Simulated assay, not measured.
Amino acid sequence: MAEPKAIFLDMDGTILDHYNRVSQNTKEIIDRLRAKGIYVFIATGRGKDEIYTTTPEGFAVDGVISSNGMTGYLGDKKLFQHTLPVDLINRVIEKARQQRVYYELFPTSGPCQAEQQDRAMLLEAVVGPKPDTVGINEWIEREEAIHGGIVFVDRIEGEAFSKFYCFSKEQNKMVEWGRTLEQLKQDIPFSTSSSSKHNIEIMVAEKNKATGIQSFLDALNLTSDQILAIGDSFNDLQMFELAGQTVAMQNAPDEIKAITDEVTEYSCDEEGVYHYLNDRFFVR
């Protein structure tokens, strides 16, 4: 395959191991690629403020697409920002409260929020042992969120919110929540995405990682066939459909591996992205 002009990297399950850390080797291979003249970008479901808490000192990329394409920064410049309608925010919180569904609401900048009256409900969702079907990284994130990551407010106010993250230990509960959201879409348009069977994320309609990447390509005068995308999950599907070169992680579901050009030899816990990039671009 031709050498790409830009590389877009997912985070969870890709450059992050299952304990939510980016390795020093991964940081250094990104540095070498950028020195070589290849743009390297993050394209993640995480909120912007969640990214650099997971990385080694000095970690740097050329830009960040966060919240599954809701915000985009090319260097320090904000390239785009999409926000959820206020009515949708209120309706989702009301229905989550009725169905006792764990939620986090992400502003375009700053920590995630939830309403104070829902604190006990959210805590209930992460009490007890981790179910076998919940990934350790997702469980750790929820424990960290409930014990200090979430800012609890008397009432959600303002308009600059980019996405909801919803979670349940019970897969059946997420299925039912998905049905509720599909009904709500008939009144207010929005999009949803899942990275596991235990979560659903709610975002602005018709916006995703791929629409964010396209904004970057337009700004840099690049075409989709000039980029490489690496990811591991279903919220990477649109990104894979857009990119000219695609790589799935060894730890990705079989359905994801089946649609990409390549699969890494190693998993995210074995620095799979580092090994793939090093072998492809620097080992002769």
Rank of each mutant, 00 (worst) to 15 (best):
T55N: 05
S168T: 02
S195L: 07
D12K: 13
T211N: 10
L237R: 10
M121R: 08
T260Y: 10
I51H: 02
E138D: 11
R32L: 14
L79V: 04
I29K: 05
K130L: 08
S215W: 10
F167P: 07
G13I: 03
Y39R: 12
S224I: 00
N278T: 05
E94I: 01
P129W: 05
T54D: 00
R280A: 11
E270P: 08
M203V: 12
I51D: 01
I42F: 04
D62Y: 14
G63K: 04
L79H: 05
E28Y: 08
L237A: 08
V273I: 14
V101D: 03
T246G: 12
I136K: 03
L33P: 09
S168H: 07
P129I: 01
V64P: 01
D87K: 15
S215D: 10
V101Q: 14
S23C: 04
G47A: 14
S267F: 05
P85W: 04
S23E: 02
I7R: 08
A210D: 09
L222S: 05
T14W: 02
F8E: 03
S109T: 13
S233A: 15
S233I: 04
N199P: 14
Q214P: 08
K95E: 15
I93L: 15
C166N: 12
E104C: 09
D236G: 07
E157C: 07
G110E: 03
S233Y: 08
L123P: 00
I93Q: 09
S66W: 12
I42D: 00
M249H: 07
S109L: 11
F152D: 10
I65E: 05
I202M: 11
